[in-house]
């Protein structure tokens, strides 16, 4: 059985009387340690797809299993609490907009997922390791407002990695960066994938970055091509 298996995943948004088919009948399988590139035009359903995969949102229909657990199947849905537990034990997220908390320092933002994980409380060694890996050691005590776009992006990635997830979901991780920074992030993702066997689901417009994917899901109007 594949690590993540999706079958006929469909997401329909209703906006008034209008129905938007953001995702239609998506079926695919992802193995452990793979890098999946999700591409497509703006509005094609990329964010919708990774949100459903990352257990942040319920699909309208279809089924999804992650690491052998049934997350959705037809009308069967998990409770918010159960979804959260799966989310935090398996996934790390880097959002399209970084969503750093403005009152917390870089260090505190990175530690945030650990606050809510019983048994996984702030491990100082892990923090130092991550700060170093992402070149943020000198920025640890700065507030997000004092950072450059690239530093914010790296802080968001560090936060996604602090709890050692098995899957990293990154929505446009280089969308806000120049080409040099983009290349840095690309190398970092490759390194994480190779050294730690991290499974990566990557949404990107950048063809250069999409190349690192062992599998590419190209979306058009919610349909995988």
């Amino acid at each position: 059985m594949p690590f993540i298996a999706a079958k006929n995943l469909t997401k329909i948004y209703t906006r008034g009387a209008e129905k938007i088919h953001a995702l239609q009948q998506a079926s695919f399988a992802i193995e452990r340690g793979e890098i999946i590139a999700v591409t497509g035009a703006s509005g094609s359903g990329k964010t919708t797809l990774v949100n459903v995969l990352g257990c942040l949102d319920n699909p309208t229909s279809g089924s999804l299993t992650v690491d052998g657990k049934i997350i959705f199947r037809d009308k069967l849905k998990l409770s918010e609490t159960d979804l959260t537990k799966i989310r935090r034990s398996i996934f790390g997220y880097v959002f399209q907009k970084f969503f750093l908390l403005p009152t917390l320092t870089v260090k505190e933002n990175i530690l945030l997922p650990a606050v809510f994980q019983p048994g996984l409380r702030a491990n100082a060694a892990r923090l130092t390791e991550i700060l170093q890996m992402l070149g943020l050691d000198k920025r640890a005590n700065h507030l997000p407002g004092q950072l450059s776009g690239g530093e914010m992006q790296r802080t968001a990635i560090a936060r996604a990695l602090i709890n050692n997830p098995s899957v990293l979901i990154a929505d446009e991780p280089t969308g806000n960066l120049d080409s040099r920074r983009s290349a840095e992030i690309k190398n970092l993702l490759l390194e994480l994938n190779q050294k730690q066997k991290l499974t990566i689901i990557l949404v990107t417009h950048n063809p250069e970055l999409a190349k690192i994917g062992s599998q590419t899901l190209e979306l058009k109007d919610g349909i995988i091509q």
Partner: peptide
């Protein structure tokens, strides 16, 4: 509103 949503997607349970 948004920040709390972020906390929840980062693993905060409703009770947290």
């Amino acid at each position: 509103f948004q920040e709390i949503g972020i906390l929840k997607s980062l693993g905060a349970l409703p009770k947290d």
